[in-house]
Design a protein around this nucleic acid. Structure first.
Length: 557
RNA sequence: UGACCUAUGGUGUAAUUGGCAACACACCAGUUUUUGGUUCUGGCAUUCCAGGUUCGAGUCCUGGUAGGUCAACCA
């Protein structure tokens, strides 16, 4: 008898298993991911990506990548490339070639003609203002357009004229004839096609009329044989319309299911607002390591695996949610703890002179690269008479001496992988700032061959002064000072922009840090995880702080 | 003054579909450790409210309450 706990299914998986059990679509599962190429993918898309790709994968199905490119005003090809790159980086493979809704423009046009012929669509040349006025409000029904009962012939003719470019932008639209009194605003004769004399990123000048989202999405799903069209909750009101078009066009009945989008503290997921950060120069670009975009998180050093694990832990449901960013950071640490090699770097240095260590001596010490992964091997780290340690690792007069394990006068401390040293004295400048610490070492306390009998509670990281390499370190903090910067009525989210979100400093690293490639990740011992930035050059290696280590000392303070 | 969606610890998801409210994160207290990291242990809930059905309700019924979404020729 096995007592293994049964994995619980989320509501989408439950639905799919039911569909499969009922033999629906011959048990086929085919999902799709439909980004609009008008911006970069962000943390919210990561969840959508995981749901669509992983759910299909779980049931032996496929996932299409389809760009929803029906609005030439905002869409650009370079976004297409960035989106593809992000999806691949996350580790997802779409079925066949990437598809485009614009590939279906001819078919969509034919669908529209079909509906006109069925008396279910009409051309309306009311002004946008008049149309809005007639639409009513959520609590007040709309009224019919005077053009609602044009003859099929006239509609066919006018629609053809629209297509041929005989009418200016905004002068007329094609609408579905549904119900102006519906409590669902989207069913009040929604617009199917509008005129836009604009160049499309793929079809160029071929079209001057473009279908709206609602007249594109469901049909595209149907054309591709998508069985389960998974989207976020805000499309829930679109579902009746999605079904209406499929029903009246008599095409493959794809089924839309909605889930709650993910919100993460201190992050925003509005493409428009992210674009604003980029345009106003508050960040260096869509891939600024502070951005909640996939490209930003990649550059920051968040592993793809950690992002997927995060989504898994977040789960899927239909209620509003706000995930603590600490969960994401936990996933990142957990992954990096296993994979990132350890290095020593001192980011706020103060010099220590070991007065009883020979002046011209250098020792090559051997340190383990990753205690969590033996196969990561070892490396050589030079040790000498003068070293850097962190300023915070020395206290002239610790406030609570019993809880302070670090260096101070008459205090012993272990230098990681090297010797135990004892603080003796220190030098201050005219401002009272410590400029140099003097210490002595215990000769027979060398790491691995310690028979000194000396005890040291604390262990410090260090870098040998003559061997130290300068590195640029970009320390990042949250992009906003508020958990939900977009949730304050009457306040612009930019009021919560954290002007201290980037602090660039110069630190010293051990020599091995100079042979590092862009994208490589390390744990700087006792500090955090860092990722080599593409801005690095031969004479200046740049590191992005991915996330700090958990700090038990800080907490107790 | 409408329609639709949702309500389970601080946060997010579970609960074999009516049978002892579980897991993760966070937080707190310890343990281990040549990283104050990692590991390990323990602590942390009147399931929105009020009635009802039942031997038994987070789950079913009735009535409330609260939050979210919808009025772009955006997706």
């Amino acid at each position: 008898m096995s007592t293994e706990t049964k994995e619980s299914l989320n509501f989408i998986e439950q639905m799919i298993e039911e569909d499969i059990a009922n033999g629906k679509n011959d048990g086929r599962v085919h999902t799709r991911f439909p980004p609009e190429p008008n911006g970069y993918l962000h943390i919210g898309h990561t969840k959508a990506l995981c749901i669509s790709f992983e759910t299909a994968q779980k049931y032996g199905g496929k996932t299409n990548l389809r760009f929803d490119d029906t609005n030439p005003s905002t869409e650009e090809t370079h976004y297409v490339e960035a989106i593809k790159k992000d999806i691949k980086w996350l580790g997802f493979e779409w079925d066949g070639e990437a598809r485009f809704a614009s590939d279906y423009f001819p078919q969509l046009y034919a669908f529209a003609v079909d509906l006109i012929k069925k008396g279910l669509a009409y051309v309306d040349d009311l002004s946008p203002e008049e149309m809005a006025a007639q639409k009513g409000t959520p609590t007040k029904p709309g009224v019919n357009s005077p053009n609602r009962d044009r003859s099929v012939e006239e509609n066919l003719d006018l629609f053809e004229q629209m297509k041929k470019g005989e009418h200016p932008d905004g002068s007329m639209v094609l609408r579905a004839k549904i119900d102006m009194t519906s409590p669902n605003m989207l069913m009040r004769d929604p617009i199917m096609y509008r005129i836009k004399h604009e160049k499309h990123h793929r079809t160029g000048d071929e079209w001057v009329i473009y279908p709206m989202y609602d007249f594109t999405h469901g049909q595209s799903d149907a054309i591709e044989g998508i069985t389960h069209s998974l989207c976020s909750l805000e499309f829930i009101h679109h579902r009746p319309l999605y079904d209406w078009f499929i029903k009246h066009l008599e095409i493959f009945p794809s089924k839309q299911t909605e889930f709650a989008r993910m919100n993460v503290t201190y992050m925003i997921t509005s493409k428009r607002k992210l674009l604003k950060l980029v345009q106003e120069g508050l960040v260096t670009g869509w891939d600024d390591p502070r951005m909640p975009t996939i490209s930003g998180m990649r550059r920051r050093g968040y592993p793809a695996k950690a992002l997927r694990e995060f989504c898994k832990k977040v789960g899927v449901a239909r209620r509003e949610n706000l995930i603590d960013i600490k969960l994401l950071e936990n996933c990142v640490r957990q992954e990096l703890n296993q994979t990132a090699n350890r290095m020593m770097a001192v980011l706020d240095p103060v010099k220590v002179v070991i007065t009883n260590y020979p002046e011209d001596k250098t020792e090559d010490l051997i340190l383990i690269n990753n205690p969590e992964d033996e196969s990561a091997g070892k490396r050589v780290v030079p040790f000498s008479r003068e070293i850097y340690i962190e300023r915070a690792d020395f206290r002239e007069d610790p406030p609570s001496p019993k809880k302070f394990y670090r260096l101070g006068p008459e205090r012993n401390v272990r230098l990681k992988g090297a010797y135990i040293i004892r603080g003796e004295s220190f030098v201050k400048d005219e401002n009272g700032v410590i400029t140099e610490i003097h210490a002595t070492y215990y000769k027979d306390s060398k790491s691995g061959e310690d028979n000194s009998g000396v005890k040291a509670k604390g262990v410090l990281h260090w870098v040998s002064v003559p061997h130290a390499k300068e590195i640029e370190v970009r320390n990042y903090d949250r992009l906003f000072t508020d958990e939900t910067p977009t949730n304050h009525e009457g306040k612009d989210f930019l009021e919560f922009f954290n002007t201290e979100s980037l602090k660039t400093i110069t630190g010293y690293g051990e020599p091995a840090l100079t042979k590092v490639k862009s994208g490589e990740q390390f744990q700087f011992m006792r500090i955090g995880y860092f990722c080599c930035d593409p801005d690095s050059s031969e004479d200046k290696i740049v590191f992005n702080k991915t996330v700090s280590l958990r700090d038990g000392f800080k907490k107790k303070k």
